[in-house]
Amino acid sequence: MLGAVTVVAFVVVAFTPVPKLAARRLAVAPDVGPADAIVVLGATAYVDGTLGDASLRRAVLGIRLYREGLAPRLVFLGLAGEAKSRTRLALSLGVPREAILMEGAEPTTRDEAHRMGVVLGQRLGVRKVLLVTDVLHMRRARALFEREGLTVRPAPTETGVLGAASPERRLLLTRYVAQEVAALTYHKVFGYL
């Protein structure tokens, strides 16, 4: 019985638009505009500091938003040299050093939000942030940042993932959606949201 259900579920996930519909329900629409700071959340980097795909996408969007003049500060988060690599990238693309704030010790989104609440909200008096992260991660990230007293303008990356057109892409999208739904549930159960 379970095997048959699994086969049917696989066919639905891989060969129908169901994953895209689920992802669109989870996604947060962009609200890009002026803010007090641009906060680029950590993703993954290799041990030598080379940025992973998601990390690079987020960093590039953060730099672009800064260069469009949407905020006077650009904050890079990320462990294992990720924040440093992003800072080097930003400097090489013309972002002045004094505009960059680097934080590299927070292992989870919740820790990042808390740290930003303290550093930006309490110490620097920042109210509104442009939050840069993946489109499916944004719902949870925004809620965690708002819980720290910051007003969030979402600037999601990777919106193209919502248009997954091949079975492999739809399976990947399903994995992202399942992961994020599980993470949201975990945060709600343990009272973090």
């Binding site: 019985m1 379970l2 095997g3 048959a4 699994t6 086969v7």
Partner: peptide, 11 residues
Amino acid sequence: LTLEVIGATVV
């Protein structure tokens, strides 16, 4: 048997 293996995989 194939469906049984798939079900066990999920478990």
